[in-house]
């Protein structure tokens, strides 16, 4: 089980190279990073996985895109939309993470979507950036949405991932600091540990429906 930051943006999206972010991640207590559109590899003892984030697309295009990426080892994420889109996205084989749920519609992720996420082992991502950089209403809304999601998570037990969305080494936070930040949304230490290892859960090969004895 590796402690993973499920989304960072190294250079050119951000101002820090992937090596520098890996170096910083090691000192902050991480074992693995997911970086969109980055060559996967091992930097300073940190495993960097390639991530693909699909946003602003129709379900049909989403299926085509995911099918194209299925053979690779990339972590495929989909930006959350309305409720219908989210249910459809969760049902697509090959989708690993549903992101941006805090900025989606209030009814975008309900109990049906939660049950589907649990059945299909699709994680819901918790974006820590509104909790860290947000102030006032922005942060309050994010806390409210995450608390709401965690109620569903405790009931249906779908995977959760934690992402800093850091574009700089200055936006990265230590594992202990993230545990503190997650306590704001009602996550205790076992919840945070489970969320840090959520990538292992979603990228593990599923148990086969039929087992040859």
């Amino acid at each position: 089980m590796k402690i993973t930051d499920a989304c960072i943006y190294p250079y050119p999206c951000g101002n820090s190279s992937v090596r520098r972010m890996a170096l910083e991640a090691r000192s902050l207590g991480f074992d693995r990073l997911v970086a969109p559109d980055t060559t996967p590899g091992q930097f300073h003892g940190i495993e960097v996985l390639n991530g693909i984030i699909i946003r602003d697309t129709m379900v049909k295009d989403l299926i085509t895109r995911v099918r194209r990426e299925r053979d690779g080892k990339a972590v495929v994420s989909v930006q959350a939309g309305d409720n219908g889109f989210n249910r459809a996205a969760i049902g697509v084989k090959g989708v690993h993470i549903l992101r941006g749920i805090q900025s989606a519609d209030k009814t975008a992720f309900d109990h049906v979507a939660a049950r589907m996420a649990a059945d299909n082992q699709v994680a819901v991502d918790i974006d820590l950036s509104p909790l860290i950089t947000g102030r006032g209403v922005t942060r309050q809304r994010a806390i409210h949405r995450y608390r709401d999601i965690l109620v569903l998570e405790r009931r249906f037990e779908f995977p959760i991932t934690l992402s800093s969305y850091a574009r700089s080494v200055l936006e990265m936070r230590a594992v202990r600091e993230i545990s503190g930040i997650c306590s704001l949304i009602g996550m205790d230490t076992p919840d945070v540990e489970r969320a840090f290892t959520g990538i292992d859960t979603i990228t593990a090969s599923p148990d086969p429906a039929v087992r040859v004895v």
Binding site: I132, E177, I181
Partner: peptide, 23 residues
Amino acid sequence: ERELSIALSTITCCRDRSIALRI
């Protein structure tokens, strides 16, 4: 200390300069 350390981890800038505080 816990409350302060969480608050410190939310500091991102100081006088328009991006910073991070590592406890």
